[in-house]
Amino acid sequence: MKSALSNYARPILFLTLVVFIAVSVLSLTYQATKDTIEEQQDAKIKSTLQELFPALDTYEYQDSLYTIYSQDDTIGYAFLTSGKGYGGNIDIMVGIENETTLKGILIISQQETPGLGNRITEDWFTSSFAGLSLSDVFLKKDGGAIDGITGATISSRAVVDAVREAAMEKIKAIPERTQAKAGDLE
């Protein structure tokens, strides 16, 4: 009887103990890496914004919109958006100068096909967005100003559409923000 009990009890206790140790080790690792992971993410955002706005001194993040300051002047806004590509989501950082003009875009992450769709990360493609007015953010074959990538229309269009649609959405928030800020100063 006693041996039957220990036959059942031993595996249960052993597994519980193993799980307990595993959980403790994991939570220690999580605590130890948490700050570094956050720093890495902040540093990545800062360097991305700096690439879009070389004059950036500081930035402020509120309601998923980055406001970019050079000294005390607002020089633009930026936000993250994502488009549905061929291989998954394409995350894009979009910089806008004002309500109508793009400053530039950067592809943050993507899983497009190497050699085809992943050419959206190449400089000639992303830099063709710089300075465009929002109404021109279409592929050339759709009547806009951007050269699509040969053989990767889905990926190119995903980027173009995501940038335009998100920008249209975000600029609505800008005037209010500026006013709110002016109101704060009084």
Binding site: Y30, T33, T36, I37, Q40, Q41, K44
Partner: peptide, 8 residues
């Protein structure tokens, strides 16, 4: 976690 922290 380590890759996320040190090799993003």
């Amino acid at each position: 976690l380590l890759f996320q922290a040190y090799f993003p």
